[in-house]
């Protein structure tokens, strides 16, 4: 009874917030409704017994994807009102295409026959005593470990590629070179000058800015930044 009630609450809010995502005037509100929709979908997953998916949905989609959306929406100055400007004009064409698709879907669904054993096969085999996090872990890290690791390599290559093709070392950028800082000796930074008492600094030829006698050698690593950018 409570589960059914929770289902209708989650599903209702989900549908409502999904409708608000596409209809809200302010794009920031759209993203916020999207986050609400994600939370409710996570609730539905929990009800269905897929607690791992629920947590992933909250962590990945709410925690990362939606926040990214929010940043993008805030950073890009898109005039959504102008984008929607042609709404009225294109409405008839859009409706006509939608109607055709609806009719086609209806035809497809009209001829739909379920295989006799489809209903049983729809659900993944549920191992007794193993919750679905363990089952997923077993699939990913035991059964498909080779493919999982190979997919990881694909992502690594994508990362290397993005860096290789786009990163440019800017020569104007000032970097902190900790090794050079730490290996400087006192003599390179400070010079002690004996001044005769009462002579003043005017007559001693030491006016102006004094630089340390020994110029600091340029760190050997500095020119190597010129044309490789993989760090």
């Amino acid at each position: 009874m409570i589960a059914a009630l929770a289902f209708y609450v989650f599903a209702g809010i989900l549908l409502l917030s999904a409708a608000m995502v596409v209809s809200a005037r302010n794009p920031v509100h759209s993203v916020l409704f999207l986050i609400l929709a994600f939370f409710n979908a996570a609730g539905l997953f929990l009800l269905a017994g897929a607690e791992f998916l629920a947590m992933i949905l909250v962590i990945v989609y709410v925690g990362a994807v939606a926040v990214l959306f929010l940043f993008v929406v805030m950073m890009l100055d898109i005039d959504f009102a102008e984008l929607r400007g042609g709404f009225q004009r294109y409405l008839p064409v859009g409706l006509a295409v939608g109607l055709v698709l609806l009719i086609e879907l209806g035809i497809v669904l009209g001829g739909w026959k379920l295989a006799p054993d489809a209903a049983a096969l729809r659900f993944a085999p549920n191992l007794a005593g193993a919750h679905n996090t363990a089952q997923l872990g077993r699939l990913i890290y035991t059964d498909y470990i080779l493919l999982f690791q190979a997919a990881g390599l694909v992502l690594l290559v994508a990362m290397i590629g993005a860096i290789v093709l786009t990163l440019r070392e800017r020569h104007s950028a000032l970097r902190q070179d900790i090794t050079a800082q730490q290996s400087r000796s006192v003599r390179q930074t400070m010079e002690l000058i004996d001044m005769p008492i009462g002579a003043g600094i005017g007559g001693s030829g030491t006016t102006g800015i004094r630089r340390p006698a020994a110029p600091a050698p340029a760190p050997a690593a500095a020119p190597a930044h010129a044309d490789h950018g993989g760090h």
């Binding site: 390599l153 690594l156 290559v157 290397i160 590629g161 860096i163 290789v164 044309d227 490789h228 950018g229 993989g230």
Partner: peptide
């Protein structure tokens, strides 16, 4: 084009 990523990409 002397960047170490070149042989690494060939390797992957």
């Amino acid at each position: 084009l002397r960047r170490f990523e070149f042989p690494v990409l060939i390797l992957f």
